[in-house]
Amino acid sequence: MTALDASSDAPPSDAGRSVPSVVRLDGVRRRFGSVEALAGLDLDVPHGGITVLLGPNGAGKTTAIRVITGALDPDAGRVSVFGLDPSEEGEAVRRRCGVVSAKPALYDRLSGFDNLAYSAELHGFDRGARMDERIREAAARFGIEAALAQQVGGYSTGMKTRLALARSILHEPELLLFDEPTSGLDPESSHAVLELIHAMPAEGVTVVMCTHLLLEAEGLSDQVVVLEDGATLLAGTPEGLTRRFWPAAVVRLAAEVPATLEAVRDLPGVRAYAPGNPATVELDDAARIPDVVLGLAARGVRLTRVEPHTPSLEDLYFAVRAGRTGPAGEAGAAA
């Protein structure tokens, strides 16, 4: 298995240059007994934006986060976070990171306020008005301010996640690491949490989020990294990866008489046609779609549906996992 070069699809800066990496992992290995959690993981997280680590359970996502903060030392390979080695300068790295783990990791017997105060003080805040104000600001941002006085043991799962999120941003970190942050949440709470995460890069924060839920990553990620068996299977921007796997534009067409759709084969720009109702048509450019509609109408085809199809992350994920050979010829290497 060979990992694709993540930098090829790395998000460019405004000036068109590559954005410097906040996190860089080169060939990182970590073994727990007989289990190899990370098997030569390569990862490049550019500054700003949201990088989503996608993979099934056991792919190495959580271990990757633990290695990034220096909570675990790698057995082999090189880790660089803000240009520092977390194994050597762990405190300096962790001061600049905020982490939300899969379980909220809160102290049930303490109040919400005390949980936040504990984290704030470990990050160097002195007790006093400034710390209290910062706590209330962070809690308010995640809509948990009113519950700060309550013991966390009485919180719902959604409230606990919000409190954990508030805790992660208290010290204004430059790098946020979220490990399945919506785990156990109802759809409404999940949506709210993802909205809040989505807003974070606007403040110059870099976000790394682990998930095995493709829908979560859809629309949220600036970079997708697909992990499998502790190694990078594929990395890049969603658009770039989609283009790489599906360079042609796809449109789905339905007609009153499906057989009449065969006429599309004769139209300019049509690369492939898969019959059905809807039929799937591959074009050399999405800009051809209006011409295709006019062309079919001119041939007497009565269209009932025209649906430009953008492959989802789910399509991409399963294409990669299934070892599909992309038109660019790179997926074979990836898979």
Partner: peptide
């Protein structure tokens, strides 16, 4: 057991 070890492990505390 409570999972709060994860919080401490990622904190700056030595």
């Amino acid at each position: 057991e409570r999972g709060t070890g994860e919080f401490l492990a990622h904190s700056p505390a030595g």
